[in-house]
Amino acid sequence: MAGDPVRFGIIGCAGIARKLCRAIALAPNATLHALGSRSVAEAQSFAAVNGLPGSVRLYGSYGAVLDDPLVDAVYLPLPTSLRAAWAVAAARKGKHVLLEKPAAADAAELDRILEACGASGVQFMDGTMWLHHPRTAKMMEIVSDRGRFGELKWINSVSTFAPDQEFFEDNIRMKPDLDSLGALGDLGWYCIGAFLWAAGYELPSAVSALPDVTRNSAGAILSCSAVLYWGSAHETAATFHCSFLAHVSMDLAVVASNGSLHLKDFTIPIEEGSASFEFTPSAKFVDLHIGWSVKPEKVLVPTELPQEALMVREFASLVQGIRDSGCSPESKWPEISRKTQLVLDAVKKSIDGGCILVHL
């Protein structure tokens, strides 16, 4: 019957899956139906630790989740090296795909996923949660208003955190055979995505990594920076730094000809129930340059649900439309993922080439 909740299956018990279990429980149009791990014991342990309802089916393999005829959609928090194979398998089974980011090791792998989703008519979305927060829509109202904000000139983002020693010893992001992108894929994905968002998803004309790349002994990227350019004369530029070696920072600054927008927590809001940003319109220096003519305006945006639950709600709504009403999948989300992946690939190519300028 139309309006029935979307039944999710989760493939893999990574730490982020805990957050999505809660998000699925909070989303009004979704329910967790199945969880699959590499063994039933692992699935049972995850379910017990996270208080999953007894109604959730627990499987000892990933394939068993895909074989469950009641599963409408799957969430895949698997290592990056495994995502393409299992996302393609899910799509071919007719399951809608919510895929953790980075979406793939490179654009060629992502294209395989998107082609499989397109062939099966299933919805694809990556797990970039901040795009679904109402603050993001409010900021876009300002950024897209050229009369008020002006022409985009410069964007900067910093995404860092300093994990404990166990992370550096055991986490998949420290192992290039499991995740070839390290901090660039985990944190740089957000920065690149924010730049594309601010630029109306226009691809940059060129990118270049900066010579500050840090790797571990296995070759995993621990820290890196890059600059992106738009236009033949580089009229607009963006810079980012992402790192596992610095204190938590999630800064985003968007500067145009008539105004600027700043926030300190763009990927994960400091508070779950609301988030804010500062907008400064048409500021000038006062006489003697001893101050500004206007103060930044703090804009507070409340939210009824956490951003991850809003993401699940949006994804489930699209799945319901396809399942119950014969709608077509929403193309916006795979297009955003692919453009983000293309730019990320270009930054990785620049890093591997010794910070060469890479044209898109």
Rank of each mutant, 00 (worst) to 15 (best):
S249G: 08
D265S: 12
H247I: 07
A246H: 15
S243P: 07
L261P: 04
H241D: 10
I270F: 09
S260N: 10
H262K: 12
P269M: 03
I270A: 14
H289G: 15
E278C: 10
H262V: 14
I270R: 14
A253W: 06
F266R: 04
S282H: 14
T239Q: 13
D251G: 06
G273P: 01
E278T: 06
T267M: 07
F285T: 10
S243C: 07
S260A: 15
V254T: 05
E271L: 09
T239A: 15
S276P: 00
T280N: 10
C242Y: 03
F285W: 12
A253T: 14
K295P: 00
V286T: 15
I268C: 04
S243M: 06
M250W: 04
V286F: 00
F266E: 03
K298S: 08
E271P: 00
A246E: 15
E271Y: 11
G273V: 00
E272S: 14
P296L: 04
T267P: 02
S293N: 06
V248Y: 07
F277A: 02
A237W: 05
S274K: 15
V294E: 13
P269G: 02
F266L: 08
S274D: 08
S293V: 07
E278M: 09
F240C: 08
F277G: 02
E297P: 00
L263V: 06
T280F: 03
E271V: 05
N258L: 10
A238W: 05
D251H: 10
A275E: 11
F266V: 13
H241F: 11
A237E: 11
E297W: 01
T267Q: 06
S243F: 04
E278S: 12
N258C: 11
E271R: 14
P296M: 05
